[in-house]
Design a protein around this nucleic acid. Sequence first.
DNA 1: CGATTTTCTTAACCTATGTTATTTTTTCTG
DNA 2: CAGAAAAAATAACATAGGTTAAGAAAATCG
Lengths: 189, 189
Amino acid sequence: MSHDLLLANIAKHIQLGEDEKQQFCAYLQVKKVKKKQHLLLEGDVNRFAMFVVSGCLRSYHLDANGFQYIQQFAPEGWWIGDMYSLITQEPGHLYIDALTDADLLLISKVNLEKLYKEIPKFNYYFRILAERSLVSFQERSMENLRLSAKERYGKFCLRYPTLTNILSQKQIAAYIGVTPEFLSKMLHA
Amino acid sequence: MSHDLLLANIAKHIQLGEDEKQQFCAYLQVKKVKKKQHLLLEGDVNRFAMFVVSGCLRSYHLDANGFQYIQQFAPEGWWIGDMYSLITQEPGHLYIDALTDADLLLISKVNLEKLYKEIPKFNYYFRILAERSLVSFQERSMENLRLSAKERYGKFCLRYPTLTNILSQKQIAAYIGVTPEFLSKMLHA
DNA sequence: CGATTTTCTTAACCTATGTTATTTTTTCTG
DNA sequence: CAGAAAAAATAACATAGGTTAAGAAAATCG
């Protein structure tokens, strides 16, 4: 069933008894979304951490000129959310939407807090995830300063090998922080 | 004594008994460093997470042309380390050095792992720190793409209000990702 | 399948930021 | 305190990447 991918992911880091798995799964909601459907808008409070069972989501900022800046893609097996809003339960600045039809598992902030209390091992699991994600964003923030657009394109291909051929150039441009016109020029030069 | 600042920081997130405080402090080492002294070089394995009791540290990358890109400043009350190397215990790419004379508390990776086992509450504490740091680097990686140098300068001033007047323009330039020449021009325009 | 929308390409011109070099000012160190 | 070293200022010129606009190709949808 749809929880298997997530349980397998968790099992890489912590060992859960059958009862604990049950308890954890009871806190999850299944959600199906269609391509282009939004899960979060700027100004919303993000009440759910989302795990992608199939399909692909993305989170992005919108600037004053309507340009999108993609913070993260979340293909199958990835977690996504507006971490700022999830932590503080204040309105966030991110949009999250589906790039393809997708199946998700959601856990609410409320249930997450219960989980931390009832099965403290989950503090360990989510600490490891947060640490890895931190490393990845630390790297990206430096890359965005010191690498040229062409080099950032190379890093994108390394980071999301499964997406390189699937995503439109427009999406990739919005991730590496250049205009679609410039990316097109760059790829043909 | 020098552990008070760290214990106060921890107390904001988790409650420790006297015995637990003792046990935790027993895992710490005190270290004094002089201005310009390095604590980590590229290629080193980072074996200690470092807490700044007084003074200011920084972590940075060096590119092929000898340019420094500052990942983080760590004034009093901040943790610093090469998270990638600390997690994986593989050689990292960061340099860490002291911008001023500084007093530090170090906890080794080995002791940290013991701590997680013996006082699981520390999983919670470091999860919260990792999450907050993650939010901060998520924001910065987007800022580095979508903001102009002048706007990034503004964000730097917000993020490190105590450092704005202390740091040389060269350090600030290496944080916001411009040349010192350009920062100088920008500040006088 | 055809119509509409979206994406991609190309090209001419523009701007923020980089480069190199020189001088001035500030900070460090013996 | 003096001399050396580092940082900051200034300026002329260079370039990566942005802007605007238009047409071609591809994807979407009724």
